[in-house]
Structures are given as C-alpha cells and as structure tokens.
C-alpha cells in the first residue's frame, strides 16, 4: 500500500511537473487566472508559472505577456480578452493551442519547437515561425487573423486559406470558409502604451561549425 501510494505520488509529481508550460513576463492592469477544474480566479502576477489549461482573462485597459518554456514563443493578451492556454509536452517541445474565447491576441514565434495553434469559435490558425494577431469579435462572432510576419494557415470545416505577411484572413462563422484580403489600416489592434516586443526587431540567424544556431537581434526603438 505504501509503495502504491509512493508510486502514485511520484506519478502525480511527474504529471504536475509536466503541467508547467509558460511564464508570465509582464502584467498590466487586472488580469485573472482560473485553473482547470477550478471556479476560483486569482490575480496574475509577473513571474507566474502557467499550467496546462489555465484560463486567462484581462480587464479593461489591461494586458499580459507570457512566454512558453520550450521555445520562448510569446503571446500577448490584450484588454477585454479571455483564452485557455493548452500545452502538451512532446519530448523537448510543447504543442501549444490557445483556445480563444474573446478579444485580441498577438503571437510571436521564433524557431518554434512544438505546434502552435490558435483555436477560435470559428476556425483554427496554425502557424510556424511568424507573428500575427488574432481578433475574436464576440464569443460567437467573426474571427480576424492579421499576419505581420511569415505565413499562417487558417482552417475550419468549410475550408482553409493561407495568409501571408500583409494579409488578413477573415472567418465569418464556423461554416464560412476563410477569406484572405490585404490588411487594412485599423485591422491591427492598439497595442497599448507599451511597444510590442518583437514588432520592431531585426533578427539574423547564424549557425556555427557544429550546427548550433545563434540569433542576433537588433531592436529598433523610436525616440520618445
């Protein structure tokens, strides 16, 4: 019995250890977290470790930025938004899926390790090595995916489409196929008072003789 208890404890510890998928690196305003199978919300603080299927919700004029632990993929959750972040450990990578309920989100991926998908009520955006916004207008309303770098595949039951840099994919409903058009001014939400971390970065990738990759990042900032 004791052995079984110990085994269960060990298994439980391991399972718990695998649950940690991201860390909050920036919080502004009222941001709350609700763990899976819990109805109680707690305020999010910087440095908070996020687990699989944690639900995050931001208030008015609030936002938070989190980074995933395997490849430092970044997710910014703008004001008045909510989502569930899901991450499944696969070897050294985390397969990520952001279940968007409402609001606007910005994702920035560099050298992603696992899958990165954003699931909205109308569609799924599947990405690799890119930067894009997801705007969900209403819990059952249309979805807009604004690509600022790279390529995003947007799909649902009705079809799929590829959106490239400078393009926006719109999905009116679950049964409407994604439509791609050029991004218009006003498609990109206001990022608030803070500059978006990766929007104005130049990145150069180098590989040494042993195949190790290094990245030179040059941050361009406007004088205030």
């Amino acid at each position: 019995m004791l052995s079984l208890t110990a085994l269960l404890w060990l298994f439980g510890s391991a399972a718990q250890a695998d649950d940690n998928i991201a860390v909050v690196v920036k919080v502004n305003g009222k941001v709350s977290l609700t763990a899976e199978k819990s109805t109680e919300s707690v305020p999010v603080k910087k440095g908070q470790v996020l687990k699989n299927r944690d639900r995050l919700e931001t208030g008015a004029e609030a936002y938070c930025i989190l980074k995933f632990l395997d490849d430092k993929s970044l997710l910014r959750i703008n004001e008045k938004s909510s989502c569930i972040i899901e991450g499944k450990k696969e070897a050294d990578a985390i397969d990520k899926n952001i279940f968007v309920e409402l609001g606007s989100f910005f994702a920035s991926l560099f050298q992603p390790k696992g899958k990165f998908e954003v699931t909205t009520p109308t569609s799924v955006a599947s990405v690799k090595g890119t930067q894009f916004w997801v705007i969900q207008l209403g819990k059952a309303g249309p979805t807009r995916v604004v690509v600022t770098e790279g390529i995003v595949e947007v799909r649902n039951r009705a079809g799929k489409a590829l959106a490239k840099k400078g393009q926006t994919a719109s999905v009116a409903s679950r049964t409407s196929p994604p439509e791609v058009r050029l991004t218009r001014s006003g498609d990109i939400p206001d990022a608030g008072e803070e500059e978006l971390e990766s929007q104005q970065n130049l990145e150069f990738e180098f590989e040494d003789s042993d195949g190790r990759k290094k990245v030179l990042r040059i941050k361009i900032e406007e004088e205030r």
Binding site: V25, K26, K46, G47, K67, L69, K72
Partner: peptide, 26 residues
C-alpha cells in the same frame, strides 16, 4: 537538451520593476 533563455532576452530593455528571469533546460 538545451538551455533556453526565456526572459529577459540578451540585451533586452525592460522596465526596472518588471524583471523576471526565466530559463528552461528541457
């Protein structure tokens, strides 16, 4: 495995009150 510097990234500019050092070693 490798060591991944999650935050702050090298040469990153951050607000003094917002430092979170996170490093993973999967």
């Amino acid at each position: 495995g490798e060591v991944v510097i999650i935050s702050p990234e090298p040469n990153e500019r951050i607000v003094a009150e917002e430092l979170v050092v996170t490093v993973s070693f999967f």
